[in-house]
């Protein structure tokens, strides 16, 4: 009895935990359910709780109409990752290990930068891009999307690279490596974990961005998937199975990354929030 008591309590908790999780994920389940529902059944009363007698028509529509949007999103996401890491990793190294004059002020500016609402950035970018004639370009969208991730990236890299022992870097310097070589062949390989975390969030944020896309890239040929979904809703489209199928496809990167890189996701969520 003594040993079974706690074990039983633990299973009771598991049961409760499953119920909580099911409640929380119900909207996600519903999205998947609707994506497989036949058009005629979408307004059934009561709604079909399971996609029995389901259809993949919604997904056919996605494949037919949304592939270019998905391609753009992938391109913009990867571009944002490259730009973010290229800018943030050297900055993190300098702030963590070289302790420059004015480094504290720069960190403070980066902190403030994260507080600027996206709508303000969007309006400023719009005014600038319009003048320069670079609206509706994937490159312009990459630059704007990177503003969401760069301050976060510098923060993560600084926090992580502070943990690299000075002796390791000292040894590289003694061996005749310059600061750049040290950075490239010692610091970067040691920072693989934080590179993954930063890349992952930069990609997800760029992939999910709707605000910059709808203001800076609403008209051109290269529009991302968020605008593909928005166009469906905006047209007062009643094919909610196709809308939800697009939503499911748009959720694939987030889901895949959560499964294969869960600990890097958790590292990103808590970094900055929980320090010392």
């Amino acid at each position: 009895m003594v040993t079974r008591g706690p074990a039983r309590a633990a299973w009771w908790r598991t049961g409760l935990g499953v119920v909580f999780t099911a409640l929380m994920l119900f909207p996600v389940y519903w999205m998947v359910n609707v994506s497989f529902t036949r058009e005629g059944d979408l307004r059934a009363d009561p709604p079909h709780l399971f996609p029995v007698d389901g259809t993949v028509d919604g997904y056919r529509v996605v494949l037919r109409e949304q592939l270019p949007y998905l391609g753009t999103s992938l391109l913009v996401g990867l571009g944002t990752v490259a730009l973010t890491v290229a800018l943030a990793a050297p900055a993190g190294y300098a702030l963590a290990k070289l302790r420059p004059v004015g480094g504290g002020a720069l960190s403070f500016v980066l902190l403030i930068a994260q507080m600027v609402p996206g709508i303000i950035m969007a309006m400023g970018f719009y005014a600038i891009y319009l003048r320069l004639g670079v609206l509706n370009s994937a490159a312009g969208l990459v630059l704007a999307d990177s503003t969401i991730a760069v301050p976060f990236g510098v923060l993560i890299f600084t926090a992580f690279m502070s943990g690299i022992p000075d002796e390791v870097l000292q040894a590289a310097l003694v061996d005749g490596a310059g600061r750049w070589r040290t950075f490239r062949s010692v610091v970067l390989p040691l920072s693989r974990g934080s590179i993954i975390t930063v890349s992952l969030f930069a990609f997800l944020w760029a992939w999910s961005d709707f605000l910059f896309a709808s203001t800076l890239d609403a008209g051109g040929a290269s529009r991302p998937i968020t605008l593909g979904i928005y166009r469906y809703i905006g047209n007062n489209n009643q094919e909610w199975n196709a809308i939800m199928a697009t939503a499911v496809v748009a959720s694939v990167p987030a889901t895949v990354l959560l499964i294969v890189a869960q600990r890097y996701v958790a590292a990103g969520v808590t970094a900055g929030a929980v320090k010392d």
Partner: peptide, 30 residues
């Protein structure tokens, strides 16, 4: 308190946060 599956369930809780906002918003609309 650790219990069987607690790690997995906690990870699943992250899903809504990682979904693109337009996905969550249109799901809630429906």
């Amino acid at each position: 308190r650790h219990f069987p599956l607690s790690r997995t369930l906690r990870a699943l809780f992250l899903v809504p946060w990682l979904l693109p906002l337009i996905v969550s918003a249109s799901t809630w609309s429906w």
